[in-house]
Design a protein around this nucleic acid. Structure first.
Length: 608
RNA sequence: GGUCCAGUAGCUCAGUUGGAUAGAGCAAUAGCCUUCUAAGCUAUGGGUCGUGGGUUCGAAUCCCGCCUGGAUCACCA
């Protein structure tokens, strides 16, 4: 952590040094004071020579000279002023400054041995951020949409923690309601006592099958009723199945022994199934809440709010929040019969969390179809006096769509999470065996790598896209392992490890530091620039909550590294000074890849 | 209808607070393995940045109108 801060400081120092230098140059040349913040400094484009670029256009009014001339004058001043600036070049209205090679080698020496480079660790006093994600219903297995949610939530928790926060990962399980009763009723009627053990099925899949069964039977019943002359509305109202399901819900709320027992048993099956899926996905939680525990707390909270006049009761006995002052509608919080709605349980969950933890920031990872819900929740929690309420973050992500549109369970187009992961592992295994990369590994070791690659591909695929946008997933086209993919990045990491193994095998000593005067190629400097920029990317990703920034950055770095790898000998370089520098540069790139991938919840292999 | 979000290469996506010639990957074509891993590298082709205005030294980016797609506005969750 110490070293990491040093690096950040070094980097910031050069930026602000340059800015300050621009300010004093302007004063010296044109006798005008400008604010340091107004200096437009940016990283120089990749295809241009230089490290930092000053945009001179805004200064033309002051210099009263043309862009090139102004740039030249400024460049000369800055070069004189800043020891680290070795050269400059003016292209159109852009002043490109180049830093000395010793600046870069020095920076490399500073961070190369820091395994935690880019990660700021939290302590007891760091802000506590609670991140809710996953939030499944217990009536069916997880699908592609849940995968995006889980991967985003998990990655986010790592990114937030890498920014020096304490993080509590949490999950709210929607384990009650009419949808659960449908599965239960179908199992009771047609299940013939089936269990995960008797069928060999994962519990969540078994329960999901009965949810589907209910729907099928319900449709049959509806068709029969309509056949018998009823209208659609009448048929729906007269559904015996739906009636039975509703009765079951009432019994459940009354803690009827039989219904409650069945509910507990079927939920157990589902949880056991979920555990397997979560484990395979590589996600976990620090604290799990259950809606069956929270919905009553929510009801009490609403009633309390009623006493405090935060809400009001209508003549029909229902309870509402009037949000017109906040530019929204009125929102129902308790039904006429006093039962809870979706919002109510979220209030209860919030209250329990508030009691359990000293939360500074609450982040909800929930799809963008609930944007309105969270707008309302923020206001309602605030009215109830929860201090983080109005500042809650709804991390609103887009849908995963199929090429033909949304996934529909009725049309059987839902992509199952377990199936998808297994398919990818199989593909990774086939491909790896074909390439013969893991010879010498035991079956067990190799299998670990197959999983790592498969999950790496899946995770990177989901995380590289801007989370706010909808994304398309084509189940017919399997996720790539080449190009802009997780395996490409993992491969780059494995390559670096391979170089080190080779160096070791050949008895090449790796020095601790790079000679400050080592000559550097453009590619090498570019890699150092990117490495030095990593902490800034992590900070930005934490600020705007975007794993995609990390993903794209790590990909660019890996791509750059592979180009370097192809054009330069590393462990086999004859010149000892260069060889050391390159080996250290490799190490440094490897660390950034590893830590960046860690922030996406992706592991990296030693070989692949 | 109100509100919100999105529209960039054939496809999937990048594009920092407005900056230089709008970038990757996939797909196509042509090359590179007796040299540190070819899950790699190089080269070629591919664009009225949905559309019309505006703001200015400069707009994919900011503002307004329109078109298209999606979400939401439940005593559903």
């Amino acid at each position: 952590m110490k070293k990491n801060e040093d690096t950040k400081v070094t980097k910031m120092i050069i930026e602000s040094q340059i800015k300050a230098s621009v300010v004093s140059a302007v004063k010296k040349l044109y006798a005008t004071d400008i604010a340091e913040e107004s200096v437009q400094i940016q990283l120089t484009r990749k295809d241009m020579k230089g490290d930092y670029t000053i945009v001179v256009f805004p200064l033309l009014k002051i210099s009263k000279k043309n862009p090139v001339e102004t740039g030249k004058e400024l460049g000369e001043c800055i070069q004189e002023d800043c020891a680290d600036v070795s050269e400059f070049e003016v292209v159109k209205g852009f002043l490109n400054l180049q830093l000395s090679t010793s600046y870069w080698t020095n920076l490399l020496n500073e961070n190369v041995h820091n395994e935690q480079y880019g990660i700021t660790e939290a302590d007891d006093k760091s802000p506590l951020v609670m991140i809710e994600y996953s939030s499944p219903n217990t009536n069916k297995p997880l699908h592609l949409g849940h995968i995006r949610n889980n991967l985003l939530g998990y990655s986010l928790s790592r990114i937030v923690s890498a920014n020096g926060n304490q993080v509590v990962k949490t999950n709210i399980v929607n384990d009650r309601g009419i949808h659960i009763c449908k599965s239960m009723l179908a199992w009771k009627k047609w299940g013939e006592g089936q269990t995960p053990e008797s069928t060999g099925k994962k519990g969540d899949h078994l329960v999901g099958d009965f949810y589907v069964k209910f729907d099928q039977e319900y449709k049959k019943e509806q068709a029969a009723l309509i056949e018998a002359g009823q209208t659609k509305d009448e048929a729906e109202a007269n559904s015996a199945l739906m009636k039975e399901a509703r009765e079951m819900l009432v019994k459940w709320e009354a803690h009827d022994t039989e219904v409650y027992g069945l509910w507990e048993q079927m939920n157990q099956w589902v949880y056991q199934g979920f555990d397997v899926t979560y484990k395979k996905m590589g996600v976990d939680f620090d604290k799990i809440y259950y809606e069956s525990d929270t919905y009553k707390v929510g009801r009490d909270m609403v009633l309390e709010g009623l006493d405090k006049k935060a809400f009001y009761r209508r003549d029909d006995n229902s309870v509402w929040a009037d949000l017109e002052k906040d530019g929204l509608d009125e929102k129902l919080l308790l039904r006429t019969d006093g039962t809870s709605v979706y919002m109510t349980q979220d209030i209860g969950t919030a209250k329990l969390r508030y009691d359990d933890y000293n939360i500074d920031k609450m982040v909800y990872v929930v799809g963008n179809e609930q944007n309105y819900h969270f707008k309302v929740l923020a206001i309602v929690l605030d009215r109830l006096g929860l201090n983080w309420g109005k500042d809650l973050v709804h991390f609103s992500y887009g849908m995963v769509e199929l090429p033909e549109g949304k996934m529909k369970s009725r049309e059987g187009t839902v992509v199952d999470a377990d199936d998808l992961m297994q398919d990818m592992i199989n593909t990774a295994r086939d491909m790896s065996k074909e390439l013969g990369k893991l010879e010498g590994y035991s079956e067990e070791e190799a299998e670990k790598v197959y999983e790592m690659i498969a999950l790496g591909a899946l995770k990177y695929f989901m995380l590289k896209v801007d989370p706010r946008k909808n994304m398309t997933f084509d189940p017919k086209e399997s996720i790539d392992f080449n190009g802009n993919t997780g395996p490409f990045i993992q491969y780059t990491y494995a390559r670096i490890q391979s170089i080190y193994r080779k160096a070791k095998a050949n008895g090449i000593a790796i020095s601790d530091k790079t000679d400050l005067n080592t000559e550097l190629s453009e590619k090498e400097i570019q890699l150092m620039r990117m490495v030095s920029n990593f902490p800034a990317v992590v900070a930005e990703a934490g600020k705007v909550y975007s794993p995609a920034l990390i993903a794209n950055f790590v990909y660019d770095l890996a791509k750059e590294f592979n180009q370097f790898y192809h054009e330069s000998p590393i462990a086999v370089e004859e010149d000892e000074t260069k060889r050391s520098m390159r080996l250290l540069l490799c190490k440094s790139v490897g660390t950034v890849i590893k830590n960046g991938m860690w922030m996406m919840g992706v592991d990296v292999p030693e070989r692949m």
